[in-house]
Simulated scan of single mutants.
Amino acid sequence: MSTVRLYDTIGATYTATRRTDPRIAARIWAALGDARTVLNVGAGTGCYEPPDRDVLAIEPSALMRSQRPPHSAPCVAGSAEHLPFGDETFDAAMAVFTLHHWQDPIAGLREMRRVARRVVVLLFDTSDPSLFWLNRDYLPEFAALRAVRVLASVSDLADAIGARLDPVAIPWDCEDGFHEAYWRRPEAYLDERVRRNVSVWHGVGPDVEQRAVHSLRRDLASGRWVERNSEILDLDAAELGARLLIA
């Protein structure tokens, strides 16, 4: 399914659980440096757009565009691989948790590099699915899903535009409900509203989803989840593969 069709299907309640986490935002905004004009690629509903800069957003899904707040940055229809702007139109181009949906991530990154003097992309290195207990113990299908959706390694993506990769720890009380956000709050994954706003669950399908939820509920009730994951219960933040690609 294309990104447009995917988010026109699952995006209706996106803003209920997906929002800007201020600690992650601070990392992104610091990486933008002194950029005054910023293009947000695959902008969705506008999370992480810096409020103190001149931002233009581009997003392929009409449903996602329709959920942008009234006073958010202007948003146009379009995709990362074909940005309708001239060379170095912007001081910076940013993209947050979107690159894994692009048809050609390297082409999209090169387009961002073409239209902006600085590129900042927040993504996940999912090359080791066992890094996150949910994938390891309940969603082994994540590995196959990743193989279908990711066309290049994180290092290949960085090399394509001469970028560096900086790790980003995920706080235990992260305010943005992406797939890994509830790593210390496992009960959240039992909430269908949380799952509906994460594309992974759509990707694995309803049968796998219900099996995983049933197993997690059982392990939480029995105490097995705590036994398996006791080492993370006192952590304030976790390294789960989040990376800032900065060029």
Rank of each mutant, 00 (worst) to 15 (best):
L109W: 09
A158Y: 07
A147N: 08
A116K: 03
L123T: 07
R113F: 09
A169I: 04
R146G: 00
L122D: 00
H101G: 01
F142N: 00
W172P: 04
R149N: 12
R164E: 10
F124Y: 10
F124T: 05
D159H: 14
L122R: 00
S155A: 15
A143L: 00
D125I: 02
I106A: 11
R117M: 06
S79H: 11
E187G: 08
C75M: 01
S72N: 15
D159S: 13
P129F: 01
R136C: 01
D125N: 08
A107N: 14
A80N: 09
E81C: 11
L145P: 02
S127Q: 11
A169Q: 12
A144W: 10
P171R: 07
M94C: 08
A92L: 03
D159L: 11
C174G: 05
G177L: 07
I170A: 04
E88S: 13
V120P: 02
D156C: 12
L109K: 06
Y182V: 03
P69C: 02
A80E: 05
F178S: 00
A77G: 10
A144M: 12
H100M: 15
D137A: 02
L145K: 09
A163C: 07
R136L: 02
E88W: 09
W183M: 02
A93T: 00
I170D: 02
D128W: 15
P70E: 14
H179V: 10
H101L: 03
P171Y: 11
S72W: 09
E180M: 15
S79V: 13
P69K: 03
R184W: 12
D191Y: 12
P186G: 08
E192T: 08
H101I: 01
S72P: 05
S155V: 08
R117T: 15
P69H: 05
A80Y: 08
D191V: 06
S66P: 12
F142T: 00
A73L: 06
I161D: 05
S130W: 08
P70S: 13
L157S: 01
P74N: 02
M94K: 04
F90W: 08
A152G: 04
D128P: 07
L122C: 04
A160L: 05
